[in-house]
């Protein structure tokens, strides 16, 4: 990992770290929190639509936090962070998706329904 010159190196390090980025992230996070809470507390949508809204807002807000607060992007500097993150995501999908799928199909066949 070599860098061109001092200036660009300095820029890269302080790249994501400025007040505008934090405030932008904060305002976006506020909106992305208010929407799902409002949808549930005031019953704006049908239950099925509400669940989708909650999920979509959560995913977008996680991305906002990653970019604006953790300053994670796909630049050269963050390559190994991104790579380990992507590997973690793969494991997560296999573990979480696999387990939920397994139990979801197990319960009706074994009558282990919630009581």
């Amino acid at each position: 990992m070599s860098h061109g010159n001092i200036d660009s190196d300095h820029q890269a390090r302080l790249g994501g770290l400025n007040l505008t980025t934090y405030v932008t992230g904060f305002v976006l996070a506020l909106i992305l929190t208010a929407i799902p809470f409002g949808a549930v507390m005031f019953g704006w949508f049908s239950p099925a639509t509400t669940l989708i809204v909650i999920a979509v807002m959560a995913v977008i807000q996680i991305l906002v936090h990653l970019f604006c607060f953790l300053h994670l992007d796909f630049s050269e500097d963050n390559r190994w962070n991104t790579a380990s993150g992507a590997f973690t995501l793969l494991i997560l999908v296999i573990l979480v998706g696999g387990t939920i799928w397994l139990f979801a199909s197990l319960m009706p066949r074994t009558m282990l329904m919630g009581g």
Partner: peptide, 14 residues
């Protein structure tokens, strides 16, 4: 974010 979405909000909707 995942806690309030999965546990609380989705838990109240269901």
């Amino acid at each position: 974010i995942v806690v309030f979405s999965t546990v609380y909000l989705a838990g109240v909707v269901q």
